[in-house]
Every structure is written in structure tokens, then in C-alpha cells.
């Protein structure tokens, strides 16, 4: 029997494993959320043990897959920066006004070290509360945004 997923009345994700046993409160976790989000998703039990591993999500049936995607989208919060409207100062700490794919917001950058270069022109910016903002391709930003960003790199 294949494993499947459900959601219970408390909103918890329930895994029914191959032996038919139910595990409430499982959480999907990507192994490589930055470098390969599509590969390797684990289901962790409420107390932090791995219950299932998927090399790719295609192994699941459609309903389970939909539940998993929904849960992942609620767990993963990494706004993608579309443009930088302004910064309060070019020396850190400073406040950034940005527009992301999840709306406009403002965050505080503590130091230049919190801007991490990923492969290519991709950047990961961590704010003072530990929220990660992604710049998918800094070369694709508009010119004023790029100019601001460049001052911190």
C-alpha cells in the first residue's frame, strides 16, 4: 500500500504510512530549499524524526500532492524582491523599503554580511528577524534597485 496524506480537523497534516499507521502533525521539509527545491522532500514527525522521503514529489497521488504543496507553501516564507524602493542609509544597519512578490514591506538589514551570494546573480538577504528575502537575479532588477543593491555588495 502506498502512503497517503490527509488533513485533520485541527489543521494538522496526517501521514498514513505503508502499514496503515497514522502520524498526525507531520511536516514536509525540503532538503535543498535553495539549490534544488524540486528534489528531495522529507516528511518529519512532530518530534522531528524522518517518516518518509520522496526523491521527487511525483510519487504521490494527486490529493496528497496538493496537500503537500499547500503545506509547503505555508511553511516556506521567502519573499522574492522585485524592486528596491529605497534604503534609509548606505551604511548598516539600515531600513529597506522593497516590493516583493508577496507585497510591499520594509525590513532592517543588520550588516552587509547578511547578504549571501548564491550561485550566479542570485542573492539571499537576511533581515534582523531572520526572514530571508530572495533576489532571483540581480541583473534582472530595474536600474535604481540595482544601483542601491550594488552599494552593499
Amino acid at each position: 500500500m502506498k502512503i497517503s496524506l490527509e488533513r485533520d480537523a485541527h489543521g494538522l497534516l496526517v501521514l498514513i504510512d505503508a502499514a496503515g499507521q497514522r502520524h498526525a502533525g507531520v511536516q514536509p521539509v525540503r532538503a535543498f530549499p535553495l539549490s534544488a527545491p524540486g528534489e528531495g522532500v522529507a516528511l518529519m514527525s512532530a518530534d522531528g524524526h524522518e517518516l518518509a522521503w520522496f526523491d521527487a514529489l511525483d510519487a504521490l497521488d494527486a490529493t496528497s500532492r496538493a496537500l503537500l504543496d499547500e503545506e509547503l507553501s505555508r511553511r516556506e516564507f521567502m519573499p522574492r524582491i522585485r524592486s528596491i524602493a529605497g534604503v534609509s542609509s548606505f551604511s548598516t544597519p539600515c531600513d529597506w523599503d522593497i516590493v516583493t512578490d508577496r507585497g510591499a514591506t520594509r525590513f532592517t538589514l543588520r550588516s552587509e554580511d547578511d547578504i549571501r551570494r548564491l550561485d550566479g546573480a542570485r542573492l539571499l538577504i537576511t533581515d534582523s528577524h531572520g526572514i530571508h528575502y530572495e533576489v532571483a537575479d540581480m541583473k534582472a532588477l530595474d536600474r535604481p534597485s540595482r544601483r542601491i543593491l550594488d552599494r552593499f555588495l
Binding site: 480537523a9 485541527h10 489543521g11 516564507f77 521567502m78 528577524h129 531572520g130
Partner: peptide
């Protein structure tokens, strides 16, 4: 909370009633 997002979920003994989300600030 996870990845900088806090969640408050209101439950009664039967089920989840609602959730609210906010940044850790």
C-alpha cells in the same frame, strides 16, 4: 514559528477555528 513567520492558531477541543500569521517582529 518557522523561517521567520509566526503562526497563532485558535483551536477548540474539536478543531482548528482560525489561524493568523505575522513576521517575527
Amino acid at each position: 514559528d518557522h523561517a521567520g513567520v509566526g503562526t497563532l492558531a485558535l483551536h477548540d477541543s474539536e478543531r482548528r477555528l482560525a489561524t493568523w500569521r505575522y513576521t517575527l517582529a
